[in-house]
Design a protein around this nucleic acid. Sequence first.
RNA 1: GGUGGGUUGGCCGAGAGGCGAGGCAACGGACUGCAAAUCCGUGUACACGGGUUCAAAUCCCGUACCCACCUCCA
Length: 462
Amino acid sequence: MTFRLYDTATREVRDFVPLEEGKAGIYVCGLTVQSEPHVGHVRSAVNFDVLRRWLTHTGHDVTFIRNVTDIDDKILTKSAEQGRPWFNLAYAMHAELTRALASINVLAPTYEPGATGHVPEMLQMIETLIANGHAYAAEDGSGDVYFDVRSWPAYGELTGQKVDDMEPAGDADPRGKRDPRDFALWKGWKQDSEPATAAWPSPYGPGRPGWHIECSAMAGKYLGPAFDIHGGGVDLRFPHHENEQAQSRAAGHAFASYWMHNAWITTAGEKMSKSLGNSLLVPKVLERVRGIELRFYMVSAHYRSHVEFSFEALDEAAVGFRRIETFLDRAGAGEVGAVPAEFVAAMDDDLGTPAAVAVIFDTVREGNRAEDPAPHAAAVRAMLGVLGLDPADPAWGAGSSDDAALTAVVDALVAGLLEQRAEARADKDYARADVIRDQIKAAGIVVEDTPAGPKWSLSDAR
RNA sequence: GGUGGGUUGGCCGAGAGGCGAGGCAACGGACUGCAAAUCCGUGUACACGGGUUCAAAUCCCGUACCCACCUCCA
């Protein structure tokens, strides 16, 4: 059984053959840290986190690089609007991102490079491109350096487009470009409108890096000129990924063997944007469901499928996940076992998480039916673990010592009431028994009778 | 104009020529003092119109609608 994945470049599902047996190098385009992350942003992170966990599970030594773009036009514009230094905005939003990803158990990457820390690497690559005849310094004295699209015949290969068919950007400022489709590798400093802190020295004059070059330079630095998988959101296919590939290959790098792109989460059929995105900021969503439930919601859909976000669907997913948790609770804290073959088959087929989740539910049902649920619970935990959804994973911040202490206190208080209720029930005085149960319920605690005796839990599962 | 993707039952969401993924909801039954949890059962779903085939949600042709991207937009 081999892992197969959909390669955007070839538009087909292909066997995954790493460059080096037993290893996998992955580069994922992270975020431009210009504002708080919303659920659309973190879906990408969850999808690639699942990829990483699956490759790790199947015995690969994974090097996972996810960048942050910490300098760009939007960061400069927004920070100016907010009257604070651009680096402060980027740093603060980066911290928000880290917090959001941790709350849904996305593993920290092997390394998370930022553009501002890799200016020399980028300049080096630009120099190579100029030497190879694929880039040129603008002749208008702007200090910009452009990639020469016409000099690279393969340009457009990733997205199957021909340069001549492309819509010339109406709003593009031709400035010193030879072709309107040429893109910036280096952007000259605009003294009148941009802070001096956003300019770095270069052979072309002070300036800052273009967007695409950072990924080419950083992928090259940390993964080498050739690596296995490059990922990101669908919107990045063009121009970003197309440009990355063109410049890297023009600089002599083989670059990525496979390209993976995750689809959007939309709201009301529309792409998320800051205007309607407010209610979908990650902390906001986490007021409604737990991080593990949000992650489950995202994993329940295939990474290449559009997801129409709705709180109703999110709630529904949370209910479904609690069914799994209830089973695990009932089965007791067992061991983590092996993953069933059907689960492996589902995951090997281009990360078929929906089918994988179906296997989890099937296993839960079998476990609920079985005399001894332990082996089933062990399998369920193994599967959840691979998906980053094991409720027992300490990453979910399960129970602080305060929580534990509080639980013991409540347990003692409820125990007395439950005893009275047990007496009433023994006397068949059900009216009194129900009054006691309602009393407890009024305090926000639900009592359920199980074969092992009454059990209490907070009525709000959160 | 170019490129790519989509339309599945009350809802979410898989599948990609033959056996109704899975979840949520609903209804019936079992269990329960009643509940809860759990189990068992119940559905003539594949945008529309043609076609190919013994067999189409799945392939082909056409139509409608939706979405993304086309040089600095996540």
